[in-house]
Design a protein around this nucleic acid. Sequence first.
DNA 1: AAAAATGGTAACCTCGATGTAACTAATGGG
DNA 2: CCCATTAGTTACATCGAGGTTACCATTTTT
Lengths: 108, 108
Amino acid sequence: MIHATNIIGNKWAPIIIYVLEERKLRFGQLVVFVEGISRKVLTEQLKELEQKKVVKRESFAEVPPRVEYSLTEWGKELLPILSQLCTWGAGISIDSDDEKNITIQKRV
Amino acid sequence: MIHATNIIGNKWAPIIIYVLEERKLRFGQLVVFVEGISRKVLTEQLKELEQKKVVKRESFAEVPPRVEYSLTEWGKELLPILSQLCTWGAGISIDSDDEKNITIQKRV
DNA sequence: AAAAATGGTAACCTCGATGTAACTAATGGG
DNA sequence: CCCATTAGTTACATCGAGGTTACCATTTTT
């Protein structure tokens, strides 16, 4: 678990993975799709995810340069889990009494 | 997903949830089981998880005081997901060529 | 000559998460 | 009277993730 949370336990990684899904995206597209991320942080995150074998990077020596990012097979295995996490997170927590704080008074 | 990662996306929350599993634990036991956590941070995390309805807190007005923590039903639903995440994280990433960086030279 | 497009990098700053150490309240035991 | 126990709290210090701004290299377009 420590390993898994090291990978997805930061602000942007889950979003990047979710956005990449089954397609290839260029750096510039990722900046747009991952709303709010700065270019610097996106660079860092992609580097980290690449090093951890979750993301694959393909660089084309053209002008202007082109770089495509996609998920590795291992990275794609994360998608259904993230999906579950998403469903769970959206679950309304029922406000039934037995879920609320209970303070039991007990004199001894 | 944002919601879910807000909950489990910090250093200790997943570990606390994993340790609590199906049992009730006292504050002092948690300090021991969650190795390396400080009492202050444990307090904060438990408060946060309680507020987010993942953890249930029962306080007994005894001396010395006794407080028991356990997962709510909603929190327990997280266990299988964390388990999957753990399995995934343990997966060896195959070093096959198609998972490595590819630099395609292409003159235009 | 200058701007536009692409994929970055470097220097710097901010802020929240985390850690440390000392302190509290209440009571029983020696 | 002093210590131990339990579950914290308070006042700091630190550390690293993330953000901001400016800049680079290369070629085509205006």
